[in-house]
């Protein structure tokens, strides 16, 4: 789909927090000078077209007493698909990307318990025979997530 100027304003606004009120979309529509029905319709279209992959709460596993950890592996090309299937099979693997580097598989482990990260990474090492480098976040330098639309 092609986004028009109104879609872009909506997408930018909706990357910020939704007000916690009984009719939150009406409140955002008023901010943007739109009707609630039009905002809901445009959001539904952008979601259907996968311009918005998800609309809802962003959860922080660490704040629930769990943890996130970025991990990387150097997987030989010939084994890549087989290793990917084994890695993706773990429910703790939240995202997984192939990247241009000797370390060519990068994934995020999310667990409700701190011990869950080590257990999942160790399991992947056992099942694949490859080392899992672990890069837990030490500090987040985060101002605001925003795609200029």
């Amino acid at each position: 789909m092609t986004l028009d100027a109104t879609d872009r304003r909506i997408l930018n606004r909706m990357q910020d927090d939704l007000p916690l009120v009984p009719h939150p979309y009406a409140a955002v529509a008023a901010e943007l000078g739109l009707e609630e029905a039009e905002l809901l319709d445009r959001l539904a279209r952008m979601k259907k077209a996968r311009v918005i992959t998800r609309f809802g709460p962003f959860f922080d596993a660490a704040a629930m007493g769990g943890a996130f950890c970025l991990c990387a592996m150097a997987v030989p090309d010939a084994e890549f698909e087989e290793v990917m299937i084994k890695v993706n099979a773990l429910p703790e693997v939240a995202h997984n990307y192939q990247r241009t580097h000797r370390l060519n598989m990068w994934f995020v482990l999310a667990s409700e318990t701190p011990g869950g990260i080590a257990a999942a990474a160790d399991a992947i090492e056992r099942e694949t025979g490859h080392k899992v480098l672990r890069f837990p976040k030490l500090q987040e330098f985060f101002i605001g997530f925003r795609v200029a639309a």
């Binding site: 997408l11 990357q15 916690l20 996968r50 918005i52 922080d60 795609v147």
Partner: peptide, 25 residues
Amino acid sequence: MDRIAAMKSSGVIRRIAAAPNHYKL
């Protein structure tokens, strides 16, 4: 809504927002 507010103040919920698809943009 009270429980969501509590989870937001404790950081369990960071925000309620859209996740855009970079590729589609």
